[in-house]
Design a protein around this nucleic acid. Structure first.
Lengths: 133, 133
DNA sequence: TATTTATCCCACTGTATTAGTCAAGTATTA
DNA sequence: TAATACTTGACTAATACAGTGGGATAAATA
């Protein structure tokens, strides 16, 4: 796993939305300003989150985004997988993004990387937005 | 951490060398053929490993590479850090490659990623070539 | 109904990284 | 001294990263 700005910005925005619970929809521009993120780029990320059902949106005045489900039902794993792909250190040990790679031949090496994958995915699957907001 | 071919090939080559203990120097071409890796690319990686002292080399006929220290004294962490950089999921929680990133403001998020970094580095620092060869 | 506000959607750009290749030169030793 | 292997540097194609920009669409409000 390697976090890029995509995951980082998305997580910051989601934390922001989790805290804005009950305040209706939050505009991208408001979030971008509050968190100091590039607005147009953030917009792309929110659209991806929307397609995945993590957020809901509303157009027009007082429009914007809000969480698609309770913060306690959104895991960090979902967010990172959606925006940056595999949590595993190499695709040959990834469950959701499996692809063959050269280390695959060395079973003992593979075992080490699988243990890392297991730790990372368990950790991120058990941590929700509610835990970090 | 994200393993690229650089780390993967280097690890395979080092495992090969660890197994060839006592057979003197192993040529790049021999290793490349045995492991099915691109020779010239592997050569670059071995040079980096050499500069870091992980392997020694000898030119001329019967030349090649061998481990620079006992396999039990070479950790996977060293190899990966050398060729692919930080073990941490994001640079803002990296000890050796620290750089500020946006998530840094959110202490609770940061804590999660630090725990991942700790697991990964401990794991790879405690695993040596001797363990996987 | 017209205007404003905001999302939605598409294309595009510049830079860096990845995964190599190629050529020419240097050192070693059988 | 010829063969073998390491060393250096430049070069390349493809992909990923981190954004920008412009226009269309939808909804609220005046």
């Amino acid at each position: 796993m390697k976090l890029t700005r995509r995951s980082e910005y998305a997580l910051l925005a989601l934390v922001h939305l989790a805290r804005a619970k009950g305040e209706g929809y939050v505009a991208v521009s408001a979030m971008a300003e509050a968190q100091g993120l590039p607005a147009k780029f953030l917009e792309q990320l929110l659209m991806a989150l929307k397609r995945a059902g993590l957020v809901r949106s509303r157009k027009g005045p007082h429009g914007g985004y809000r969480l698609g489900r309770p913060a306690s039902k959104i895991t960090l794993a979902e967010v990172v997988r959606l925006l940056d792909g595999a949590l595993a250190p190499t695709d040959s040990v990834s469950t959701y993004f499996y692809e063959s790679t050269p280390v695959e031949r060395e079973k003992k090496l593979l075992k080490v990387f699988k243990e890392i994958r297991d730790f990372v995915s368990t950790k991120l699957e058990r941590t929700t937005l509610a835990d970090v907001a």
